[in-house]
Amino acid sequence: MTPLTITSRDAATGPVLEITGDLDYTSAPELRQLLDQLTLMAGQQLVLDLTGLAFCDSSGISALLAARSRAMEQDATVALAAVPANTARILRIVGLDRVFALYPDAAAAVARASVTDLTA
């Protein structure tokens, strides 16, 4: 068990949340609470950087989906960066690999979003 820590930073394209540790039944509410307080501007991209994600259960997946709905409510988008193999496998099983934009790392997610921004 690794405790969950979430650090937030601002990229040019919108906030980046670095999620480290276990995202499970006990810790997922922490991410949900943070998301509730998060204000996104229309067209921004929220990046969840999962490089340090040690474990993610169904409650964790629900929290990721909560991030998606939160972003959509505010006309923003969401991207998952550096999804660990285990979680990627679960996302694939539940068909969410086609619902989330996935990137190998946060930099790629931000770069991709700025390109979209320019073309838009």
Binding site: L65, V94, G95, R98
Partner: peptide
Amino acid sequence: PGGMLIGVLPRAE
């Protein structure tokens, strides 16, 4: 493969 989590999207495959 491709069967989606139920209840997330208005239309799911």
